[in-house]
C-alpha cells in the first residue's frame, strides 16, 4: 500500500477534530494520495446520507407528558403529601359516573334553613376533588394557625376563624383561596390519618344553625353549619363520626 497514513486520521480530518498542524499535513497528503481522496469522498457521501435521510427521531408528545407526570410525582408537593395519580383518576371517574346518575340540588333537600346555602353539593365535591390534585391543596402551608390565619388578610373581605386541632387528631395542613357559587371562600385544610378534610368558610347574614345532618354522595361526607356570621361546610372521605367531631370542635 502506497499510503502510509493511518486510516483513522482521515476520520479525524472528516470530523474536524485534528489539530491545525495535523490537518494541514493531511491536506498535503491528500494532494498526492488518490486512495485517501477517494476514501474521504466515500465518507463525506455517507455522512451526508445519514444527515439528510431524516433518521433523527424526536420524542413523542405522549412520552413528554408521561415524564412530566413522573417528575411531578418525584417532586415534594407544597403540602408535603402526594395524592397518587390513580387515585385522582378514580376520584374523577366516580365524579363523572355519579354526577350523571344523581343530580339533586343540595341543600334544598334539607328541611331547615340550609335551603339558602349559596352553593350546591356538586360545587363542594368539585372543589374538594380539585384540591386533591397535586399542587392544588394549599396556597399557604403551615400547621401554625397564626401563620394560616393572617395569610388570608387582604385576600378575602372577611377573616375566617382558623384553629389547629392537632391534639384532637385533626392536623391543620394549611389554607387556600377557592371559589364556591361564584364567591371567593376560604378553604381550611386538615388531615386526619392521611385523609384530607376541606372546610370551606364564607360569611353569611343568616342566623346560626346547629350542625346539620350529614350528607353523603360519591363516597364523600359533608357537614354544614352556620355560626357567628360564618357559613361552614366540611367535606372529606373520612367517616362521618370523624367529620362530626371536627365540626363540633370548630363549632365551639
Amino acid at each position: 500500500m502506497s499510503c502510509d497514513f493511518t486510516p483513522t486520521l482521515l476520520h479525524g480530518y472528516l470530523d474536524d477534530e485534528l489539530d491545525a498542524a495535523r490537518a494541514a499535513e493531511f491536506e498535503r497528503h491528500l494532494e498526492c494520495c488518490k486512495e485517501c481522496t477517494a476514501a474521504l469522498g466515500a465518507e463525506e457521501s455517507l455522512r451526508s446520507s445519514l444527515q439528510r435521510s431524516g433518521l433523527y427521531e424526536n420524542a413523542p408528545v405522549a412520552l413528554r407528558k408521561k415524564i412530566r407526570a413522573g417528575l411531578d410525582a418525584a417532586t415534594a408537593s407544597s403540602a408535603g403529601m402526594r395524592i397518587s395519580t390513580w387515585r385522582m383518576i378514580a376520584v374523577a371517574a366516580t365524579v363523572l359516573i355519579v354526577a350523571g346518575v344523581s343530580w339533586f340540588s343540595w341543600p334544598r333537600a334539607g328541611k331547615d334553613s340550609a335551603s339558602t346555602a349559596p352553593f350546591t353539593v356538586a360545587e363542594i365535591i368539585d372543589a374538594h376533588v380539585r384540591s386533591l390534585q397535586p399542587g392544588h391543596l394549599t396556597d399557604v402551608t403551615s400547621t401554625d394557625q397564626h401563620t394560616v390565619k393572617p395569610w388570608f388578610n387582604g385576600k378575602l373581605a372577611f377573616v375566617p376563624p382558623v384553629k389547629d386541632f392537632a391534639d384532637e387528631g385533626f392536623i391543620l395542613v394549611g389554607g387556600r383561596l377557592d371559589v364556591l357559587g361564584g364567591q371567593n371562600v376560604a378553604a381550611l385544610v386538615y388531615s386526619r390519618r392521611k385523609h384530607i378534610i376541606n372546610v370551606f368558610v364564607l360569611p353569611t347574614k343568616e342566623p346560626d344553625t346547629a350542625i346539620h345532618l350529614p350528607g353523603l354522595r360519591q363516597g364523600y361526607q359533608w357537614r354544614h353549619w352556620r355560626r357567628q356570621g360564618m357559613e361552614y361546610c366540611a367535606i372529606s372521605d373520612v367517616s362521618d363520626s370523624d367529620l362530626y367531631e371536627l365540626a363540633q370542635l370548630m363549632y365551639q
Binding site: M1, E35, A38, G41, A42, E43, L46
Partner: peptide, 8 residues
C-alpha cells in the same frame, strides 16, 4: 480494513 468497501 484500510479502505471502505462502498464507492461514493
Amino acid at each position: 480494513h484500510p479502505q471502505p468497501s462502498t464507492s461514493p
